[in-house]
Write a protein that binds this DNA or RNA. Structure first.
Lengths: 216, 216
DNA sequence: GCTTCACTTGAATCGTGGTTCACATGTTGA
DNA sequence: TCAACATGTGAACCACGATTCAAGTGAAGC
C-alpha cells in the first residue's frame, strides 16, 4: 500500500484551504462580490481554478466558509466588548460601538458580506451570518430589557431596527462621506441606535462617552 | 410620404409600454427579482421577447422605468401623508407610518426594488430610488429639526438610520413574522424610528397614536 | 527506481439569460 | 390596392463565469 496521507501533507492541505479563503476575503475586500470569482481567487491563492474544487464543492461553499470565519470573528469581538462593560446596557452600547468601529475598518468587505447585491445562492450563507450577529445583539437587548433598562417592546423588531441602523448608517450609500471621521460616525450612530431601542437621549450620550475608545 | 405615426398608434404604443412595465412590476411582485426576466415579462405583457427591446434599450432601462414609477408613487404618498399633519414632527411621523403601511402591502415588490440581491446594473436605478425616498425623509427631518423638535445631529446619518430601521424592520429576514399584525408592526416601527431620531419615548408614543389609521 | 495513488492543472464544457436580427406582419397615405 | 415604412417575432447568438475532466505532476511506500 504505497500511499497514505502524511501529517506533512495534511498540514499543507489545510494551509492551502486557508489560503483560498484568505484569497477570497482579499478579493471581496478589494473589489466587492464582483471580484469574488473562482479564477481570480485561485490566482490570488497561487493555484489553478480547478484546484479550488478539491477544497470546496462549489463557490457557494467557499463563500459560506469565508462568512463563517467572519461570523466567528465578529461574534468574538462583540462578546469581548460586552464582557468588559460594567452592566447590561453598557455592554449593549459597547457591542454596538465595537461593531461599528470594526465595520468601518473594512467597509467593503462587510458590505459584500451583508448587503451587496449578490447571487441567490449566497443568500443562505449570508442569512446565517446576519442571523448570528442578530442573535448576539438580541441577547444583549434581552439582558438589558430584563433589568428594566429598556422599555417593553417587540424584541425581534428592536433587533431588526438596530441592525438596520448599523447597516444603513455604516454601509449605506451616504456612508462613504465618513472617511476621516470614523470616530464621530461610530459615536453618532451608537447614540442613534441606543435611542432607537428606547434609551433616553441624555442617558444614551453618557453611555456613548463612557465607552469611549472602542478600539479592537 | 406613405406613413406617419397616427394618434391612434401612439396611444397603442404608450399603452404597450405601460403594459410592459406593469408586467415587470407583477413579475417582481410575485417572484422577486429572479422572476424579472425579459422573456417571462414579455409573455405576461402578451408580446414576444424581442419586442421589449423596441420599447426599452435594455433590461436595465426597463427596471429603471419601473423604479421611476414606484418612486413617483412613493413620493406622492409620503407628501400626501405629511401634508395632512398639523406640524413638522407629526408630518414626519405620518410619513414614516405611510411608508411602512405601504411597504407591508407589497413587501416582495419593495424588497425587490430596494434590497434584494441583484445584478450590479440595477444598482444605479436602485440608488436613485433610495435617494428619492431618502431626500423626502431628509426634508421632513430638517423641517422638524429647524423647529427644535429634534435634537442637533448629523442629518445624513439620521436619514440613513431612519431608512435602515424601516428597511430592516419591514423587509429584513425577521419581518415575515408580521402577517396579520401589520398595524402593530407599523406602529412599533414608527415608534422606534422616531426614538432613533431623538424624539422622547412618551412624545413618540403620542405621535404614533395621533397618526393612527395610516391608510393609503 | 518503480508503483500507486492523491493532488494539480487549465482548457473545454455548460447553463443561463440578455440581446440581436432577418423575416413577417401591420399601418398609413395615395 | 400598393408603396413605404413601422412594428412585432422568436430563434439564434453571445458573454459570462462556474464547473468538469483527461492528462500531468508529485509524494509514499516498497
Amino acid at each position: 500500500m504505497p500511499y497514505r496521507r502524511t501529517e506533512n501533507v495534511s498540514r499543507r492541505l489545510a494551509a492551502r484551504r486557508a489560503a483560498i479563503i484568505a484569497a477570497a476575503r482579499a478579493a471581496a475586500s478589494e473589489g466587492g462580490l464582483a471580484a469574488l470569482q473562482i479564477e481570480p481567487v485561485a490566482a490570488k491563492a497561487g493555484i489553478a481554478a480547478g484546484t479550488v474544487y478539491r477544497y470546496f464543492p462549489g463557490k457557494a461553499d467557499l463563500v459560506a466558509a469565508l462568512l463563517g470565519e467572519m461570523s466567528d470573528a465578529e461574534m468574538a469581538a462583540l462578546r469581548r466588548a460586552a464582557a468588559a462593560a460594567p452592566g447590561p446596557l453598557s455592554a449593549l452600547a459597547a457591542a454596538i460601538m465595537a461593531f461599528a468601529a470594526r465595520a468601518l475598518r473594512d467597509r467593503r468587505l462587510l458590505y459584500a458580506a451583508i448587503a451587496e447585491p449578490a447571487d441567490a445562492e449566497l443568500n443562505a450563507a449570508r442569512a446565517a451570518f446576519r442571523q448570528t450577529i442578530a442573535a448576539e445583539f438580541a441577547a444583549l437587548i434581552a439582558a438589558a430589557a430584563s433589568r428594566g433598562q429598556l422599555p417593553e417592546q417587540d424584541a425581534g423588531l428592536a433587533t431588526a431596527a438596530l441592525l438596520g441602523v448599523l447597516i444603513e448608517g455604516l454601509l449605506g450609500p451616504q456612508a462613504p462621506a465618513a472617511a476621516g471621521r470614523e470616530r464621530d460616525v461610530v459615536q453618532s450612530l451608537t447614540l442613534i441606535a441606543l435611542r432607537a431601542l428606547g434609551v433616553a437621549d441624555a442617558r444614551a450620550r453618557g453611555l456613548v462617552i463612557s465607552n469611549q475608545p472602542a478600539s479592537t
